[in-house]
Design a protein around this nucleic acid. Structure first.
Length: 600
RNA sequence: GGUCCCGUAGCUCAGCUGGAUAGAGCAACAGAUUUCUAAUCUGUCGGCCACAGGUUCGAAUCCUGUCGGGAUCACCA
């Protein structure tokens, strides 16, 4: 069931019959007819002029006449404006589409592509809590996973936690120095926030030491290196690498606090993972790979013993892979991890959801893997997303301008509640229902706000102007859904309407123009899912859901569905159509990780 | 300096595999409600699609250059 293809096939037949199918055929251009013209689909005739050897108008007319005579799905009336042929499909055809939809509760979702993919996202550091930038990452990663699943792929959601390194040692050290044994239990602080507090404390103490050293005549660079607290942190990292029991125990304890905190945030956001990796387990990977590359002559060694990849032939620079002392760097680890995962799961694609500041890194990663002879490197895709900026510019933790993820989520939910209460939407509902609706709507607003924007674009978030609940927003779409659910409840109270196929409709009840518009929208969902999957773009799905909701709201406004004056035949038909809209909205929003309330 | 990304209404964003008169939302203004839920609907206002060339029947969309903004080019991750 694909109306556009139906039109295309008819057009091909017309062209074959009229002009012969000889020679190479131009691409057929069929598009949805613009609103201001009459018709469902438009055939652009300009590319066909070489075949027809006639004017655009004559060609369009000729094809239109042929379709009228020979194609049963296309209505007799067509119109030609300049080189554009506008045709419509019959109400019977659209009724058939509605019938197919009613029989296909999972319309739009493909089963079993046979392809396996890993989507790596989130990948936080364990020294501070999640912020707005992480929210964009997590929502994107989760949504893209859902979209790929809907395209029939076997998807593994992965999280590579950066649990080791100097950053966590900073938090650990500051906690030892200033913490007085404080724990999440004793302080009432969420674990990740507690650890983040000591990361900030470290930075403060570090800065004070630098200032003092510089006052004593030292250069800034030297002061940064010589500051005692920094030396201590580095010493701590060495002890960690040597698995010093005391340091290791502290590390495990504080990371445990952070994980408990993250789990809470993940749960609140509604994201999850199939596989969690820890850098403490993977940071030594890749060394063998580099050795092999060295033997193959793909990599080279400098006098100091360090190993490099020469990418200057590809327009890039040289890239360090092993230091002179044999220790590895970030890239080494990522190379090793990629190879290991590919061996483990035989992945067709690996999608990395990582900010655009790492564009270069992934370009290099892919290139080196190819040089090492891994053909599957072509299946690596860096889903690069832009920063979330505040009105005053970038978020800076040092200046305290970060928008904390937990705070923002809580604020969205409480705002949703306040808005609903003011509008009297929650009267008569239990506290539990109120809390659940507020949660869904608040999160829906936040998720939609972020996911509707093209991932690669830098986006702006203004905390002072709280996220809207009207217009092109998540709650708008949720509201549309809730109203349909309300209709369904009412219909059930009135004795139920048992319609499962078009055969149950009143004889001769065909869709009216506005209803055809809705059916047309509904049939486009499969194409939207496919496109979103091919482009890794939740924004495509968001735009679709909004358009469908808007279209339905107009219909709902103009056409009564269950009002007493509505004839039984119309009532049944309209409710069935509304149910299809609700189902499609629900599936579309599900791909964005947005839940739909039954009432709001 | 090299490479990559972005520039569309006052603001936030669609549209970009070339198609008809460039679309939404917010904001502003004017309307619709004895409600199948007004978190809705209708209308008005708002544009040298950064700029200049090129490609062609046709360019916001493709190519080149310029300007503006961002990222990156670490023995950090």
């Amino acid at each position: 069931m694909n109306a556009e293809n139906t039109v295309k096939e008819c057009a091909w037949q017309a062209i074959g019959a009229l002009y012969g199918a000889a020679g190479e055929l131009p691409e057929l251009q069929v598009a949805k007819t613009r609103k201001e013209f009459e018709g469902d689909y438009t055939l652009v005739t300009f590319p066909l002029l070489k075949l027809s050897r006639k004017s655009p108008e004559a060609t369009a007319n000729e094809i239109g006449l042929w379709l009228k005579e020979n194609c049963g799905h296309i209505v007799a009336d067509f119109n030609v404006i300049k080189g554009f042929l506008n045709v419509s499909l019959t109400p019977e055809y659209w009724l058939g589409c509605l019938g197919t939809l009613m029989q296909s509760p999972n319309y739009g979702f493909v089963c079993e592509s046979g392809r396996s993919m890993m989507v790596e996202y989130s990948s936080p550091n364990t020294n501070k809590p999640l912020h707005l930038g992480h929210i964009r990452n997590n929502l994107l990663g989760y949504s893209v996973s859902k979209i790929l699943e809907a395209n029939g792929h076997n998807v593994l959601k992965a999280n590579l936690v950066n649990d080791r390194g100097i950053h966590i040692c900073k938090s650990m050290l500051a906690w030892l120095k200033f913490g007085n044994g404080e724990t999440p239990q004793s302080s009432g602080l969420k674990g990740d926030h507690l650890v983040g507090k000591y990361y900030v404390a470290f930075d403060k103490a570090y800065k004070a030491e630098i200032k003092e050293l510089m006052a004593g005549g030292m250069s800034e660079e030297d002061a940064k290196r010589e500051a005692p607290i920094m030396r201590e942190a580095q010493e701590m990292l060495r002890k960690w690498e040597a698995k010093d029991p005391e340091v290791y125990g502290l590390w495990e304890k504080m990371n445990g606090w952070v994980y408990a905190g993250f789990d809470e945030t993940y749960k609140a956001m509604g994201v999850s993972f199939d596989k969690v990796y820890y850098e403490s387990n993977t940071y030594l990977l890749g060394k063998e790979l580099v050795q092999r590359g060295l033997e193959q002559g793909v990599l080279f060694r400098k006098e100091d013993g360090s190993v490099w990849a020469d990418l200057t032939g590809d327009g890039l620079d040289q890239k360090l892979l092993l230091r002179g002392d044999g220790t590895s760097v970030y890239m080494t680890q990522d190379l090793g991890t990629a190879v290991q995962r590919h061996g483990e799961y035989n992945l067709d694609e690996m999608i990395y959801v990582v900010g655009n500041e790492q564009n270069y890194h992934f370009q290099v990663l892919k290139l080196i893997l190819k040089k090492l002879g891994y053909g599957w490197a072509d299946g690596i895709y860096h889903l690069s997303y832009g920063m979330v900026e505040l009105p005053e510019g970038k978020m800076k933790s040092r200046e305290g301008t970060v928008v904390d993820a937990d705070d923002l989520i809580a604020e969205m939910i409480s705002t949703a509640r306040a808005v609903a209460e003011e509008a009297g939407k929650l009267d008569g509902l239990s506290e539990q229902e109120i809390a659940e609706i507020s949660r869904m709507v608040g999160l829906g607003a936040l998720k939609y706000f972020i996911l509707k924007v093209d991932p690669k674009k830098t986006m702006l978030f203004d905390p002072k102007e709280s996220i809207d609940f009207n217009g092109n927003t998540g709650p708008f779409i949720q509201y549309t859904y809730a109203r349909i659910k309300s209709l369904e409840r009412r219909a059930a109270e009135q004795g139920g309407i048992a319609v499962t196929s078009v055969a149950d409709f009143e004889q001769g009840r065909l869709p009216e123009p506005k209803e055809i518009e809705l059916i047309k929208h509904l049939t486009e969902f499969a194409g939207v899912v496919r496109q979103a999957g091919a482009e890794f773009s939740p924004a495509v799905v968001a735009a679709y859901a909004y358009d469908l909701a808007k279209e339905f709201n107009q219909y709902y406004h103009d056409y009564p569905i269950l009002k007493p004056e509505v004839a039984e035949g119309d009532r049944v038909f309209r409710l069935s159509l509304a149910t299809q809209v609700a189902g499609t909205l629900n599936r579309a929003m599900g791909l964005l990780g947005i839940e739909m309330p039954q009432r709001m």
